[in-house]
Design a protein around this nucleic acid. Structure first.
Lengths: 229, 229
DNA sequence: TTAATAGTTCGATGTGCATCGAAGCATAAC
DNA sequence: GTTATGCTTCGATGCACATCGAACTATTAA
C-alpha cells in the first residue's frame, strides 16, 4: 500500500500555509502571531492552519509561557520544500517581472546554511582554491581544505564520522547553481553569526551582512571581491 | 520574489492527480484512459486533470495517432515525488495495517532504477564486496567495481563524464535504506530487462522476476541468496 | 460509408474548506 | 485584584473546484 502523498501535498498547497512554511525555512522558530502576519491572515485562521501542519507532522511546536513557537519538524521537511522551490522556479516563466527582494537574492538562510549569490560564490571559491572537490550532489574536502577548516576551529574528524553528510551540495533556486549544505555548511553559517559578521533579518530569510563582516567573510573563505554589493 | 510552491503542491494535492503521478513513477508513458482507470475517475475528469498537470509542467505529453501518451517531465519531478513519499511514509503511523502488495515491497521501479527490498540488497552487496564506497547521499565506484561493471559492458568512463551522477543513493520509502540510483542504477535496470531476467508489471510499478532471472541477477551482482522469496 | 474508440468541451451539481467575527480560555503584566 | 496579550473554539459565509452526463471532434477499424 503506497503512502498517499496527496495529504502532505494538500498541506503545502494552501497559500497561507505555504507562506508560513517558507518563513520557517529561515530556521528560526516563530510564534503563531508572527506566522499569521507572515501569511497575512487573522490569528484564528492561522491557529487552524498551524494545527493542521502539526497534525501532519510538518511542524513541531514548543510551548513557552503564553507563546507557541513553531518550527519545521526536521531536515527532511526543509529538503523537500527546497526541492519544491527548485521545481517551481524551473517551471515558472523565469519569474518574468517583479524586482525580487535583492537582499534575498544576495544572501539568505536555507534552513541551516547559507544560500543565494554569496552562498554560490563561497562554493565556487572553495572549489577553485582546491579545498573542496566537486562531485556532483556531494563533495569532499581535500587535505588542504581540512587543514584550513581545522585552523578555524572545526573538528573535521567528528563531522566526517557523523551521520549527516559533511559537504552536501544543495541546488540554489535563485542562482540555479550549487551551494554548500551539510554539516560544514551549517558550521559556516553558525560561525558567521557567532563572529557577528552578519545577522538574521527579523522578518525574512534574508541575511544582513555588515560591510566589515562581509570583508572578513570574504577573507576567511578566500572569496574574490568581484561582487558588486 | 520567492516562487509560489503552493501552485505545484496544489497539483499534487488532489487524490486523483497524485494517483496518476504515482502510476507514472513507473517510468512508462501511459495514455489518458489508462491514467483515468488508475485514478478511478471518468475520462472527462481525467482530461481536465491531465491538462492541469501538463500546464503546470509536471507532465509532458506526446501525441500518437488518436492516443496521448503522458510521462513525468523529468528527473526533477521524479526526485521530488520520491521525497514526498519518504516524508509521507515517515509521518504515517507505520502504515499500520494493510498487507501492502508484496511484489511492490520486493522489487519495483523508481522512475528509472530498481527499488524495494532487492534494490537495497543490491546496494548492500556492492558495498560489502568493495565495489561501491558508501559516501552518504552519493557513492563512488572503487577500482574493483569499475572493473566488474566494465566486464559487464558498461562504459564507465562515459558515465563518469556525464552530467548526471553515476552512483547517487536514493532513500527507499519502504525499506528506509539506500538503494542505487543515478546512471549506473538506470543501467542495471535496463540490463535486467534486456537480459529478460524480469519484466515490468503491466499495471503497477512492480517488477516481476522469473526464478531463473532472479538467480542470474543475484549471481551477476554477487548478492547472497538470503532472501526468502 | 458506417461504426467504434480516444479524447475534449460545456454545463450543472455538490462539497470541502479557507476565512473571519464573536466569544472563550490561559498566561502575563500592572 | 484588573487589564492586556496570545491563542483557540464555534458558527456562518462564500468560493473554488472535482465530478459526471451529454454532446462534440478526431482518428482508426470494418
Amino acid at each position: 500500500m503506497e503512502p498517499n502523498i496527496s495529504l502532505v501535498a494538500g498541506l503545502i498547497a494552501d497559500p497561507a500555509r505555504s507562506k508560513m512554511l517558507m518563513a520557517l525555512m529561515g530556521g528560526k522558530a516563530l510564534t503563531a502571531t508572527e506566522l499569521s502576519i507572515e501569511a497575512e491572515i487573522t490569528a484564528q485562521t492561522a491557529s487552524s492552519h498551524l494545527g493542521k501542519l502539526v497534525d501532519g507532522e510538518l511542524l513541531q511546536v514548543r510551548k513557552q509561557g503564553r507563546h507557541k513557537y513553531f518550527q519545521l519538524k526536521g531536515q527532511h521537511i526543509a529538503v523537500m520544500l527546497e526541492q519544491l522551490l527548485v521545481i517551481t522556479s524551473l517551471s515558472k516563466p523565469q519569474t518574468a517581472t517583479g524586482p525580487s527582494d535583492p537582499r534575498l537574492q544576495f544572501a539568505r538562510v536555507c534552513y541551516d546554511h547559507l544560500a543565494g549569490e554569496l552562498g554560490v560564490k563561497l562554493y565556487d571559491a572553495l572549489v577553485s582554491e582546491d579545498m573542496l572537490q566537486d562531485m556532483g550532489e556531494q563533495s569532499v574536502l581535500t587535505e588542504k581544505g581540512k587543514k584550513h577548516f581545522t585552523s578555524l576551529g572545526v573538528d573535521v574528524a567528528a563531522l566526517e564520522k557523523a551521520k549527516r553528510p559533511m559537504c552536501k551540495s544543495c541546488l540554489d533556486w535563485s542562482e540555479r547553481r550549487n551551494h554548500l549544505a551539510g554539516s560544514l555548511g551549517k558550521w559556516i553559517l553558525d560561525f558567521t553569526f557567532e563572529k557577528k559578521w552578519a545577522e538574521r533579518d527579523l522578518d525574512s530569510r534574508a541575511i544582513a551582512f555588515s560591510a566589515k563582516g562581509l570583508k572578513s567573510f570574504r577573507e576567511t573563505f578566500l572569496i574574490n571581491p568581484d561582487v558588486q554589493n
